[in-house]
Amino acid sequence: MAKNLLQGRVTAAHGRHYRVAIDHSDQSRHCYPRGKKAGIAVGDHVQILPEGEHEGLITEVLPRRNLFYRSDIQRSKLFAANIDQLLLVLAAEPEFSDDLLGRALVAASSAGVAAHIVLNKSDLPGTAAARQRLHATEALGVPVHMLSALDAAQVHEQLMPLLQDRCTLLLGQSGMGKSTLLNALVPDALAATQTHSEALGTGRHTTTLTRLYTLPGGGDLIDSPGFQAFGLQHLGPQEIEHGFPEFAPAIEQCRFYNCTHRHEPGCGVLAAVASGGISAQRHALYLRILAENEAAKRY
């Protein structure tokens, strides 16, 4: 590495504006990418060329362990890089989307990232029904943690052991109480977000700010804006298939090695769906994602 280059970790992102914490120092810099396309995510390790005392040019993104993002025809949204796990926040009110939940879990499986679900607002009367809807997801090996983000002691007791010494992406649909949960885990999160928003030149518009917080007990938590869509058009057919790990035993029974699990005779997956061994709802999601990605390629 050239003497005038520094290395650091991206801790905040808004558009093409980034905050980079410089390695082995207490310094951070307001940085910009080189060229028009950034492709930089919070959690990335980068090289920067210093400009003045407080700014820098990002010259290179260093190799990643993983990248968690969604994509559709219009654009891609990078959530985070180099994460250990996903913490997906749901609630009974407003009603969460089974489709969006399923897509987020497919993205996690495809990226090799463990997923956990927080069922927030556990004091609401609709929570029992919401919990029932999650039984099939829990059967896939995705733990469900029921709590109220308004009870900070409960949040710490249930989640801090899970979060310590790991880098976790906090993700959720709008309105699920994700911000309240963040504030329970990181008491100064609101003040820190405002400070970084000002540093990145975004004023009070923090809704599209992605930010990494260091947890009091160790570990990092990356907060990303709420979402209402989750395209997976960056995934190929094999990657989509890997996003449904419950298909794996049935795939071994498929007659054809290149079976798409849609209509082929002797398909082990279709047989498992018919017998109830694989959720028909999950298989329908698999078919939708395949169809969407094929349609996108025609544009």
Rank of each mutant, 00 (worst) to 15 (best):
G268R: 02
V20C: 07
A184M: 10
R64W: 09
A130P: 00
A104I: 03
A272G: 00
G243R: 07
V144S: 10
G8V: 05
D44T: 02
G217Q: 13
S110Q: 10
L49P: 03
L67A: 05
A128D: 04
F227Q: 01
H196C: 08
K297H: 13
A128I: 01
F256M: 07
D44I: 06
L124P: 13
C254Y: 02
K121Q: 07
A272H: 00
L87R: 03
Y213D: 09
A91H: 09
N4K: 04
E138L: 04
P216I: 00
G8S: 04
G15S: 10
V142M: 09
A271P: 00
C259Q: 11
R103S: 00
T195N: 05
H156P: 02
G175L: 09
Q233N: 15
T214F: 06
H196D: 15
A199P: 06
Y18W: 03
E53C: 05
E198H: 14
R298P: 02
G277R: 14
G39D: 08
G177N: 02
H54Y: 09
L134D: 10
A136N: 06
N293Q: 07
K36A: 15
H14I: 11
S71N: 09
M146C: 13
K77W: 03
L221D: 03
R9M: 05
D165A: 14
A2Q: 13
L6W: 15
H30N: 05
G175F: 13
N183F: 09
P94E: 13
R65P: 11
D26M: 04
R70F: 12
M1Q: 08
L159S: 01
A81G: 15
E55K: 11
P94I: 11
Q132N: 00
A184Q: 04
E241D: 09
K297S: 12
E294L: 14
Y32M: 13
S224D: 05
